[in-house]
Simulated assay, not measured.
Amino acid sequence: MVDEMSAALSIARRLPLSSGKGSIPQLGYGVYQCPASKTTATTLHALQAGYRHIDTAGIYRNEHGVVAATTQFLALNPTIPRSSLFISTKFAPHLKGYKAATNAIAQSLSHFRNPLRADDPKLDLPATRPNGVDRSAWPRDPDFETVRTESDGLGYIDLYLIHAPSGTLEERNGAWRAMVEAQQRGEIKHLGVSNYGVRHLRELFEFIAHEESEGRPGGKVEVWQGEIHPWLSRHDVRGFCEDFGIVIQAYSPLVRGQKWGDELLRGVVERTGKSEAQVLIRWSLQMGFVPLPKSEKNERITENADVFDFELTDDELKLLDTGKYEPCTQWDPTVWTH
């Protein structure tokens, strides 16, 4: 794996998606828990540092900041095409079913197509928590209710994920159907799921097959997102994704800093002269994942992208692929059974 992949690794590297209709930048920047007042500035810095993939979510209440930063970046760099950037967002886990998903997609799309100006005071405020009813970040706000087309703002959502396997199977399937319909309308380019376990994935694949047997588009699961790092290897989900060509987005790839100084990392850090964070990101990249490191500090955002001048050996890759089950988030919907 090292010989084949490390030679091709760079901040510009993209992984093909199984639909055959696009690719995803392998290194991403995550904005989970990033305050709205900071999101625009940190996202703009990440883009200026070379990141081309930003991961947000409706429930993070900062989609509008990500979109504002992205449109600012494109305005400052007119030779960089919109198609080179990749923004993912999600259907909130507290929402359930087809109608809520339809409205949540409309809300996210209103952010993508109605970017706020750089001086808009709303950028300092968190958006309203999505409720599956209102179609803007601020209910009945004309700034976000104005109907726009793909030629406005960012135009479309690159990747839309179900945030977690919430609700009943019927509700999860309804949400997926809403996503497929939005994709058919050109509002979303790619589809995926987050925090799904193998059981949830199999259920979704059964639903997709059923839809297609009835003559309806079933959609395609192109991306799975979840917590993955050396202390949470998820060999079962990884095996499923490999079998079906699903790209793995790894959130919390830095284990939230909980393992700094850990014996497992110490030898690699000493050999490479890199930080624990850089070693963990490099591991994720060489494993073929799409890591989403998050920081609100510009120097850390830059440092997290400085991972292309060294490589881990095969032995180090195996050493860090421990098979352990130690979620750092204390939240693991992959094991939900409802």
Rank of each mutant, 00 (worst) to 15 (best):
Q107N: 11
Q107V: 02
S108A: 10
L109V: 04
L109Q: 04
S110W: 01
S110I: 02
H111G: 00
F112E: 01
R113A: 03
R113L: 01
N114G: 04
N114F: 04
P115N: 07
P115I: 11
P115K: 14
L116K: 04
L116I: 09
L116Q: 04
R117I: 01
A118Y: 01
D119Y: 01
D120C: 12
P121E: 09
K122V: 02
L123F: 07
D124P: 07
L125C: 09
L125Q: 15
T128F: 13
N131W: 08
N131Y: 04
G132I: 11
G132Y: 10
V133I: 15
V133W: 10
D134P: 05
D134Y: 14
D134M: 11
R135K: 15
S136Y: 03
A137K: 02
W138A: 05
W138S: 14
P139D: 07
D141M: 09
P142F: 14
P142V: 10
P142T: 10
P142R: 08
P142M: 14
P142N: 09
D143A: 09
T146S: 06
T146V: 15
T146I: 15
R148C: 08
R148H: 12
T149C: 01
T149A: 02
T149F: 06
E150R: 13
E150P: 03
D152E: 08
D152Y: 05
D152R: 05
G153T: 06
G153W: 07
G153R: 02
L154Q: 05
L154G: 05
G155S: 07
G155N: 02
Y156A: 08
Y156V: 14
I157M: 11
D158I: 00
L159I: 03
Y160N: 03
L161N: 00
L161C: 02
I162C: 04
